[in-house]
């Protein structure tokens, strides 16, 4: 009985089943970390990690699953941040409305810039997204309602749905955690939807996808917009958490940072960007005392990843896991034969 079960497993490695199971495990670990995290780390720092993790997860939708490298994703993060901060501060909107407004603004910008950029690919796509993001940077620098060099400061956190006061860090932590977790589930669903399958096919071999009759430009545009929506949501939440929207949010270094986070954690993996964001945010926080050396260290991590762990932290671990599963299956197959 057990022998036949084993040999079945050996002849048909249940790749799908293990993938789904490890995804479930991943979500379990994330949930556990969210619950236990505040015991050891400042909630505000954890919220920063979550905001940047969402930013990286959104970016990874485009890079890891769409195969498109954008060098201008700070534009969507930043617009989300500015609009959310402005709505909360100038119009006195409640946080849920302010964050929604920021996300919607990012989506709108994503549609417009997506239409402009999406016909280009490779380095041209990277250049045009960078150029568009620089345009947004200069607009934010010049227009009066962004507060120029000062940014928008002391943005009120307000009351969620007019009931829950978010000025308490732990309360806000709970709310941010829920939004974070749900958005992560959405990203996972996008990746594992009919759309996600077509997307990966296009990423792998666009000419082949076209020859099968797929109008690939529309898929690329769709994933671009989905990506910008998630990134704008991340920025909008960040503005409420830190009560601040500033030029840093739309600066090109922020675009670079999200590339770094995604590559360090592992592009094209679901949890890689989260790990990458945690590593980068933690490095910046704990090494803040050594000043600009942080950037040198970040650069070092980046080079190490590109040279040593092409697949990033999570990708490398996943490869390792797959190999050991295969080895175990090989062993059990041999056992079943003997």
């Amino acid at each position: 009985m057990s022998a036949t079960a084993e040999s079945n497993a050996a002849t048909k490695p249940p790749v799908k089943a293990t993938a789904a199971a490890s995804r479930l495990w991943g979500f379990g670990v994330v949930a556990l970390l969210i619950i236990l995290g505040p015991v050891v780390v400042y909630p505000v720092l954890l919220m920063k990690v979550m905001c940047f993790a969402l930013f990286a997860a959104g970016f990874n939708l485009l890079l890891g699953f769409g195969g498109l490298l954008s060098f201008g994703h700070a534009a969507y993060f930043g617009i989300g941040s500015y609009v959310s901060a402005y709505a909360a501060k100038a119009w006195g909107w409640p946080p849920e409305a302010a964050v929604t407004a920021g996300t919607a603004a990012g989506a709108l910008l994503g549609v417009i810039f997506g239409v402009v950029a999406i016909r280009r690919q490779g380095i041209y796509f990277a250049m045009i997204t960078l150029a568009l993001a620089q345009l947004i940077y200069f607009v934010c620098l010049q227009v009066p309602f962004t507060g120029g060099e000062d940014g928008l400061q002391s943005v009120p956190r307000g009351k969620l749905l007019g009931l829950v006061d978010l000025s308490n860090d732990l309360t806000l932590y709970g709310v941010v955690s829920v939004v974070f977790f749900l958005t992560l589930l959405l990203v996972s669903r996008i990746v594992h939807s009919p759309f996600g399958h077509v997307l990966r096919a296009i990423r792998d071999n666009e000419a082949r996808a076209i020859s099968l009759g797929y109008k690939t430009v529309w898929y690329r545009l769709a994933v671009f917009v989905l990506s910008t929506v998630v990134c704008a949501l991340a920025g909008a939440m960040k503005a409420i958490v830190f009560q601040l929207a500033s030029l840093t949010d739309v600066h090109w270094t922020t675009s670079g940072e999200v590339v770094l986070m995604t590559l360090v954690g592992g592009m094209g993996t679901l949890f890689g960007p989260l790990v990458g964001a945690a590593v980068v945010v933690a490095a910046e926080f704990y090494l803040a005392s050594i000043g600009s050396w942080v950037q040198v260290i970040e650069g070092g991590i980046f080079v190490a990843c590109v040279l040593g762990f092409r697949a990033g932290i999570v990708g490398t671990l996943a490869d390792f896991g797959r190999r050991s599963i295969a080895a175990r299956q090989g062993a059990s197959a041999r056992a079943a034969v003997n």
Partner: peptide, 29 residues
């Protein structure tokens, strides 16, 4: 071929072409 997809997924993505829900990013695969 689509190198990162499994052999089955390669063929399935062709079969999928005629479906109407290929943009349904909210639907389970």
């Amino acid at each position: 071929v689509f190198p990162q997809l499994t052999v089955l997924e390669n063929v399935r993505v062709a079969l999928q072409r005629k479906r109407r829900d290929n943009f349904a990013f909210w639907r389970s695969d």
